[in-house]
Simulated assay, not measured.
Amino acid sequence: MSKINDRSRDIGEFKIQSDDNMIICRCEEITKGQIRRAVHDGMFTIAEIRRYLRTGMGLCQGQTCGKLVKGIVARELGISPLELEPAVSRAPMRPIDMKILGNERKGGKIT
């Protein structure tokens, strides 16, 4: 069983660090302490952290914070960052008017 999937193992108690207020994910304003706390609350994978805190789901899609988050999670678990699977990337979504999707035309032009 891998260390990541063994949720019964003790990773120690959460201890506040002096740099826990440092913003790691600028898009979603998530701090190092929030990420560390999530690991101690049972989120052991990058995907779980992403769903719980929304790290890497902002405009940059994890391009700025991805490696930092992975390093923090790995350090808290006492494993190599290479043991953590990367989060699934998706194209950013933008709001779009329904008339564009419906291809509504008025006088031959899209309105």
Rank of each mutant, 00 (worst) to 15 (best):
M43H: 15
M93T: 14
M22T: 15
K109L: 15
S89F: 11
M93S: 13
R7W: 02
P81R: 03
I49Y: 02
F44Y: 13
R54G: 07
I110S: 13
F44V: 06
Q34C: 04
F44N: 13
I100F: 10
G62I: 01
L101R: 12
G42E: 05
D20Y: 09
S8R: 06
K67H: 14
F44C: 12
L101F: 14
R7A: 07
N21L: 12
G12V: 09
V39K: 02
E104N: 08
I49P: 07
K109H: 10
K67Y: 09
P92M: 09
L84P: 11
G108N: 07
C60H: 01
I23S: 03
T64P: 00
M43Y: 14
G71N: 15
G102C: 07
L68P: 02
I11W: 05
I72G: 08
L84S: 10
E13P: 08
G108H: 04
N103R: 14
G33V: 09
T55N: 08
I46H: 01
G108V: 07
R51W: 09
N5P: 00
D6S: 07
L68N: 09
S89E: 12
M57F: 01
K106S: 09
M57S: 14
Q34I: 01
E48S: 09
L84Y: 03
R37A: 08
S8K: 12
T31M: 04
F14E: 05
G12S: 12
C27Q: 03
H40P: 08
R7T: 14
A74G: 08
N5E: 11
I30K: 09
R90M: 13
Q63I: 04
P81T: 05
S18P: 05
G62K: 00
I24L: 04
Y52D: 10
L59D: 13
A87F: 02
L82K: 11
E48K: 11
E29R: 13
G62Q: 01
P92K: 11
P86R: 07
A38G: 11
P92I: 08
R105I: 10
P81W: 00
I35A: 03
G108S: 06
S2D: 15
G42A: 08
V39Y: 02
Q61E: 08
E48C: 05
A74W: 03
G108D: 09
C27Y: 00
R37T: 01
E13Q: 13
I23M: 05
Q61W: 01
D20W: 05
H40L: 10
M1G: 13
I49R: 03
I30Y: 01
E83I: 00
K109T: 12
L82E: 15
K70W: 00
R105M: 14
L84E: 05
M98A: 13
K15A: 08
T55I: 09
T45L: 04
T55H: 06
K99C: 10
C25E: 00
I72A: 03
L53Y: 06
R90K: 10
V39C: 05
E29S: 13
C65L: 05
M98Y: 07
I35W: 00
V88E: 15
L101S: 10
I35K: 07
V73H: 02
R90V: 12
E29F: 10
C65V: 00
I30T: 06
E29D: 10
G56A: 04
K99Q: 03
R9T: 11
C60M: 01
L82S: 12
R54E: 13
T64G: 05
A38T: 04
D19V: 06
I79P: 04
V73Y: 02
R9E: 09
G102H: 12
A47T: 14
A87C: 03
C25Y: 02
R51A: 06
Q61S: 11
